[in-house]
Design a protein around this nucleic acid. Structure first.
Length: 603
RNA sequence: GCCGACGUAGCUCAAUCGGCAGAGCACCCGCCUUGUAAGCGGGCGGUUAUGGGUUCGAUUCCCAUCGUCGGCUCCA
């Protein structure tokens, strides 16, 4: 496909520029803090970082100084010299750099590379030197510091980061920088960042009055404003329609359950950290549910099931509560109260592939509807090391179900990537990865196989031979949660929702008070047709009314003055700025109803 | 949870060195009666996140708590 034609980032000149800029930055930092310890500094998307262990915290003023010094180093036109060394030589060179020694040990054993990833082969150990600075590094770099344009890089910010990404390790100071081929590229990138901020769902969500947070209610607990309420209703309507067609059955379950249920499900040992602590009444502990599955399992178990009944698809927009750590909260994308587009599908093994693919098919239908194109389907697998800890200890079933998912995806011609050590505790899954406008990655939809929990609940159906069999369970959430989906959609559409999803379909704008009555009549007529509409009869001028409707991104504005009133017509202004005069009200209603009914992306 | 930054009216932001807390928008009341992105005037609105401390005096300096933001870790 297209990626194959493109040069790999790792092979690009830009990658070398960024990698080299990181080294130059490290030199500048070490000059400022001669006792500072360096760790690693790789290129990343759009730039690079370097992690340091320093005697004091860096300030924005420090960054300016470092940036200045970097420009001086660049101006020195130093070459990047590579040298392959033995582990002992390397240890001598980096005798005052404990983190480097740790890396050298890892390289020597052949166990791990500089980022802590396991390596298959024992790598050679190499160093790169520019000017006075030498770093343990496999490269590649630019030939000479002069290849880095002094006006095409910028240090962005300082952040904490754990050594080797492990929260049990020491926290280091990470400096992020961005670097480009030219000043123009840098400016373009910075402009894009500013543009992205404008469509940030946290900003737009407030401006469009979709949701709010209140300190007194609590962090991560969004309050849906009326406009958000409308969007939720629309999404649920959509889900119910689609699921009804696909043979799902709707169920409802309580927000609370006894501790026993989560002990039985096996969630508590894996999940207690992310659950609100229990409340105890009359000696019984109750938990607020972080997921719906155990209760759906109980519904499955509530009567005898035959193979003829399968697949059984139980769906619920259940409200769950998860105690996400405070620093993990992020607008609507990461919250503590959430409503999942949840369903659990119970299948026999031979039904699995078809059912799994029909779930994937459902995702793709939704993505097409929303025009979602930038995503990656990720097959999340277990890791051998995690068995019995993060994952149910049954390697045979892991390998088997992973292969089942792999086959399903291959047979369905659905492109995907594989990721080790990313599975759910009870089985492999397909996660749909998307990115927020500021570049944070999230799983939107998810489709998970569960080979472990049904057995714990004694779930069974009677097969053709009259023998009990344990069903597999597919957990799926194609529309994610209301919170994450709406957060994503706000950014995806930059607030310009398709008509059906817009909180307000139509704003009627009388030009003078004399048309207020007519405007109100129109509102009544539209409302009778199921159109969401309001009339702006404020004391503002028409221009101001149009402006406020535009700012709220209302798709249709009906401007009515004396002429329209006399003729029983409207002047239609569409959100995109286009305008059509002298339209019969009935014609407009037909157009709006058509767009809404079809969930059309057209205005 | 961890590292760092930040918190002023409903919103967006000012306030010199520690010296009477201000503007625009929104809202309310008037005037204007208007043709496709802001008509004009007036009014309301603050224990400067919360609680302590230093000081004659704190939005400003210090400490703690809460919250938000940038990352890390984690995740639907």
């Amino acid at each position: 496909m297209e990626e194959q034609k493109q040069e790999r980032y790792e092979d690009s000149h830009l990658y070398r520029i960024r990698h080299s800029a990181a080294h130059i930055m490290a030199q500048a930092v070490l000059e400022m803090f001669p006792d500072g310890k360096v760790t690693i500094g790789p290129p990343v998307e759009n730039g690079f970082y370097y992690d340091f262990d320093l005697p004091r915290n860096l300030t924005p003023e420090d960054l300016e100084q470092i940036e200045k010094r970097m420009r001086q180093i660049i101006a020195g036109k130093f070459g990047f010299e590579k040298k392959v060394v033995s582990a002992d030589e390397a240890r001598k060179i980096f005798k005052d750099q404990p983190y480097k020694i740790e890396l050298i040990d890892g390289l020597e054993k052949g166990g791990f590379d500089e980022y802590g990833n396991p390596l298959k082969e024992k790598p050679e150990i190499s160093i790169y030197q520019q000017d006075t600075f030498t770093d343990l590094c496999r490269g590649p770099h630019v030939q000479n510091t002069k290849e880095i344009k002094p006006d095409a890089f910028k240090l962005m910010n300082v952040a904490g980061a754990y050594w080797r990404g492990d929260e049990h390790n020491k926290m280091l100071q990470r400096i992020y920088g961005t670097a480009w081929e030219s000043k123009k590229d840098l400016e373009n990138y910075l402009w894009q960042l500013e543009e992205a901020k404008k469509r940030d769902h946290r900003k737009l969500g407030k401006e469009l009055e979709i949701f709010t947070f209140d300190e007194e209610v609590g962090p991560g607990l969004p309050l849906w404003l009326p406009n958000g309420g409308v969007m939720i209703e629309e999404l649920e309507k959509l889900a119910k329609e689609m699921e009804e067609k696909a043979g799902y059955l709707r169920v409802r379950t309580p927000h609370l359950t006894k501790e026993d249920l989560f002990i039985r499900s096996g969630h508590l040992p894996y999940y207690a950290e992310s659950m609100y602590p229990p409340m105890e009444l009359e000696g019984v502990k109750y938990y607020v549910k972080p997921m719906n599955c155990p209760m759906h399992h109980k519904i499955f178990a509530s009567k005898g099931r035959s193979y003829r009944d399968l697949p059984i698809r139980l769906a619920e927009y259940g409200t769950c509560y998860r105690y996400e750590k405070s620093g993990e909260l992020f607008g609507l994308m990461r919250v503590r109260s959430l409503q999942m587009n949840d369903a659990h599908i119970y299948v026999s093994e031979d039904q699995f592939e078809q059912e799994f693919l029909s779930v994937v098919d459902l995702y793709l239908k939704y993505f097409k509807l929303f025009g979602i194109e930038k995503y990656v389907m990720r097959l999340s697998l277990h890791s051998k090391a995690g068995l019995g800890k993060k994952y149910v200890d049954n390697e045979r079933l892991w390998l088997k179900t992973e292969e089942m998912v792999r086959n399903a995806m291959k047979n369905g011609n659905v492109p995907y990537v594989e990721a080790e050590d990313e599975a759910a505790f009870y089985g492999p899954k397909i996660d749909v990865q998307i990115w927020s406008v500021i570049g944070k990655e999230f799983s939107l939809a998810t489709n998970q196989v569960d080979f472990a929990v049904p057995a714990r609940f004694d779930l069974k159906f009677t097969n053709k031979e009259g023998v009990d069999e344990i069903p597999l369970c597919i957990h799926r959430a194609p529309l994610s949660t209301h919170e994450r989906m709406i957060g994503f959609l706000i950014e995806h559409y930059a607030g310009n929702f398709p008509v059906w999803l817009s909180p307000e379909h139509v704003r009627v704008i009388p030009i003078t008070d004399a048309q207020n009555e007519y405007a109100i009549q129109i509102v009544q007529q539209l409302r009778d047709q199921g159109i969401r509409v309001s009339a702006d009869i404020s004391a503002q001028r028409m221009n101001a009314k149009i402006r406020s409707a535009q700012l709220m991104k209302v798709p249709y504005m009906l401007v009515v003055g004396e002429n329209e009133m006399k003729a029983g017509q409207v002047s239609l202004r569409v959100r995109d700025g286009s305008q059509q005069n002298n339209i019969a009200l009935g014609d407009f209603i037909a157009r709006a109803k058509d767009r809404i009914a079809k969930r059309s992306p057209e205005l």
